[in-house]
Simulated assay, not measured.
Amino acid sequence: MIATSLAIPDVFLIKPQVFADERGFFMESFNKEHFEAAIGRRVHFVQDNHSLSVKNVIRGLHYQVKCPQGKLVRVVSGEVFDVAVDLRKTSNTFGRWVGAYLSAENKQQLWIPEGFAHGFLVLSEAAEFVYKTTDYHSPKQGRSLLWNDSSLAIDWPLQGEPILSAKDAEAKTLGAAEVYS
């Protein structure tokens, strides 16, 4: 596994070692010891999630306030543009975002630590997205940051109108959002 720190140093793009031949491929999608060594900290995952979304769906930008979740995300079918926004008020990168293209083809993963909002845009006709979390889903603590907040200036590679949930369509801007202290 190769872990590369992105423009926000706590967010890592993970490239697994893939063994491919005429039969197909094999890869280790998660190894606790290797993962923790790569990101430089201990992590305890408690939940796995799996979603299917169609082209132009934007899910997010989601986060939880009192029980923040670190996420290790990947795509098993299709392609997405994945985004993490730093919501840690005391961070030098507060309000900045990073993005990465994740696909079944490139098999890359993104580590998004606690204190970030997370979302993705589906670029293929459909995409299956799987991820591990460091805390349980808590609808009561769930928040959404507005995907097109001009203060964030996220450069979404969107072609056409986005498809949003009601929750995401009514999300808050960074200036009005609850953030981490």
Rank of each mutant, 00 (worst) to 15 (best):
Val54Lys: 13
Phe116Pro: 11
Asp168Glu: 13
Gly115Asp: 02
Lys132Asn: 12
Ser144Met: 01
Ser51Gly: 01
Val18Ala: 02
Gln17Asp: 15
Lys55His: 13
Gln64Glu: 05
Val18His: 04
Ala7Glu: 15
Asp48Met: 13
Gln109Leu: 09
Val43Gln: 15
Trp97Cys: 00
Arg88Ser: 06
Ile58Val: 11
Pro68Lys: 05
Ala176Gln: 10
Leu123Ser: 12
Ser5Leu: 01
Thr4Leu: 06
Ala127Arg: 13
Leu6Cys: 00
Gln17Ala: 12
Leu72Glu: 07
Ser138His: 10
Ile154Thr: 03
Val18Asp: 02
Glu161Ser: 10
Leu13Ala: 11
Leu146Trp: 04
Asn31Thr: 02
Glu105Cys: 09
Phe94Ala: 07
Ala20Cys: 07
Val46Asn: 10
Gly115Cys: 05
His62Met: 04
Glu36Phe: 03
Asp86His: 08
Gln17Cys: 05
Gly99Thr: 11
Tyr180Trp: 06
Pro16Phe: 03
Gly78Arg: 13
Gly24Pro: 12
Asp155Glu: 14
Thr90Phe: 15
Leu158Ser: 07
Val76Tyr: 01
Thr90Met: 13
Ser29Ile: 11
Ile163Val: 15
Arg74Gln: 10
Phe26Asp: 07
Lys15Met: 14
Leu102Asn: 08
Gln69Ile: 01
Gly160Phe: 02
Phe45Tyr: 13
Ala38Asp: 11
Tyr101Gly: 08
Arg59Pro: 11
Pro157Asp: 14
Arg74His: 14
Gln64Pro: 01
Phe25Met: 11
Phe12Glu: 11
Glu161Tyr: 00
Ala20Glu: 13
Tyr63Gly: 03
Met1His: 06
Lys15Ala: 15
His50Gly: 03
Ala171Val: 06
Lys55Ile: 13
Ala84His: 03
His137Thr: 12
Met1Arg: 03
Trp147Arg: 03
Arg41Met: 12
Ser91Gly: 09
Ala104Gly: 09
Pro157Cys: 01
Val80Ala: 08
Leu158Trp: 08
Val80Tyr: 04
Ala37Leu: 08
Ser77Met: 13
Met1Ile: 04
Pro9Ala: 08
Gln64Arg: 00
Pro16Leu: 07
Pro162Cys: 02
His118Val: 04
Pro16Gln: 15
Ala117His: 06
Thr173Ala: 00
Ile163Glu: 11
Leu61Gly: 00
Tyr136Met: 08
Ser91Tyr: 12
Ala20Lys: 15
Ser77Phe: 09
Val130Asn: 12
Trp156Thr: 01
Glu22Trp: 09
Thr90Asn: 12
Ile154Asp: 02
Pro9Gly: 10
Ala127Thr: 11
Ala7Gln: 14
Ile8Glu: 02
Gly70Cys: 06
Val122Trp: 05
Tyr136Ile: 14
Glu105Ile: 05
Lys71Phe: 03
Ser29Asp: 10
Pro162Glu: 15
Ala7His: 10
Glu114Ile: 02
Val65Met: 10
Glu36Cys: 00
Ala169Lys: 13
Tyr131Gly: 05
Pro113Gln: 11
Lys167Pro: 08
Arg23Cys: 08
Leu13Phe: 06
Asp21Tyr: 09
Glu28Ile: 01
Arg74Glu: 04
Leu13Gln: 15
Ser77Gln: 14
Glu128Gly: 09
